[in-house]
């Protein structure tokens, strides 16, 4: 990828959760533009992914607000600053450019350049849960897959799909017509997936087009990364092996620090230590705000992240606009700020 394709901006924000979103606001008041990268396909981070309907009671001024409502309100609040979002992408690597700026490349090939990176990645990237089965790592990418990129790779294969949610059922229905055989393994004879999908799956089982195994997966057998059997155990403790070429486990998402761990920043138990004046990491120009940072007295609260975003923005301004004077103003009185917010 040529450098010419790089998008230049003031601040690259890694993570579009509540803190990343509010950082857009604080940066925007200082005329700093932001691009956000998030592995999810929409804004909100944990608020949207883990608890969209859960009421939150400790946001100042909002006695009760759900995760999704808070996300929606933040999006409304930052709308005047027109941030650019890069969803469904993992911030993969960074490099320092000769002029002191940072270049960040995502796993989708997006290239962003800015004097400041603000990591607001919460608990890390949402990635598929890896079943705690001994030796599963050796099969990943070869015969164990957590997502389907090309359906064709499963044509005429013996497949085992594990899980009971929509992903498991959707892929069961999509892959059953092209697979040689398909077994859905789930720990109970009930499914949280959409009833329509469940009915379709049961109809396929009824006419012998696929198998349903009510059991837990206990082990994997194979060689050189190629599965030959998935071992399962049912409630009555009977164990058996299912012959297969591939296993697709769908157990939802979990959070992992991900590539940020390799960016050369000092880490403390999967968190990023920062100072409490600027919330800057051990590397100049890279800041960390919200749940992902660590400092004495840190509280993992959304409101703490908001405060951290405000102070980070001040430091980001000094770095991005070294020749300009930072003039701190209040939104209540500054006509300048009110114009930016579009209320004047």
């Amino acid at each position: 990828m040529s450098v010419a394709e790089a998008v230049k901006t003031d601040v690259i924000i890694v993570g579009a959760g509540p803190v990343g979103l509010f950082a857009v606001f604080e940066l925007g008041l200082l005329d700093l533009k932001a691009h956000l990268v998030d592995i999810l396909d929409r804004p909100g981070g944990q608020c949207a992914e883990l608890y969209p309907e859960k009421p939150i009671y400790d946001i100042p001024g909002l006695p009760v607000v759900t995760g999704q409502e808070l996300t929606d309100r933040l999006l409304e609040q930052i709308k005047p600053f027109a941030p650019s979002f890069h969803f469904s992408q993992m911030a993969e690597r960074i490099e320092k450019l000769p002029d002191g700026k940072w270049r960040l490349v995502t796993d989708a090939g997006t290239v962003l350049e800015a004097p400041v990176i603000a990591i607001a990645a919460g608990g890390g990237s949402f990635v598929p849960k890896r079943p705690p089965i001994a030796g599963i790592e050796a099969y990943e990418g070869k015969s164990v897959f957590y997502s389907v990129r090309k359906m064709e790779q499963f044509r005429d294969k013996d497949l085992v799909i594990a899980g009971g949610g929509d992903s498991a059922l959707d892929w069961t229905l999509n892959l059953q017509p092209i697979a040689r055989s398909l077994t859905l393994v789930h720990h109970r004879d009930g499914f949280r997936a959409a009833p329509d999908s469940v009915n379709k799956m049961r109809a396929l089982v009824e006419r012998g087009a696929m198998a349903l195994e009510i059991a837990n997966i206990t082990g994997l057998k194979g060689e050189g990364g190629q599965l030959s059997h998935v071992s399962v155990q049912s409630k009555d403790k009977s164990a058996r092996d299912i012959a297969c070429n591939a296993l697709l486990p769908f157990f939802g998402l979990t959070m992992k620090l991900g590539p940020v761990a390799d960016w050369g920043l000092q880490l403390h138990e999967n968190l990023i230590p920062v100072d409490t004046e600027k919330f800057e990491t051990s590397t100049a120009g890279i800041f960390a705000i919200g749940d992902i940072n660590h400092y004495p007295g840190k509280l993992k609260l959304i409101l703490s992240g908001f405060h951290e975003a405000a102070l980070m923005a001040q430091a980001a301004f000094r770095r991005a606009r070294p020749d300009e004077k930072l003039r701190f103003q209040y939104t209540t009185s500054s006509t300048n700020l009110q114009k930016k917010l579009g209320v004047l």
Binding site: K129, P131, P132, G163, G164, G165, H186, H187, R188, G190, F191, R192, N216, T218, K235, F251, G252
Partner: peptide, 11 residues
Amino acid sequence: IEMLDQAFHVH
């Protein structure tokens, strides 16, 4: 019960 579908080794 439904959320336990995303856990492992459920008994």
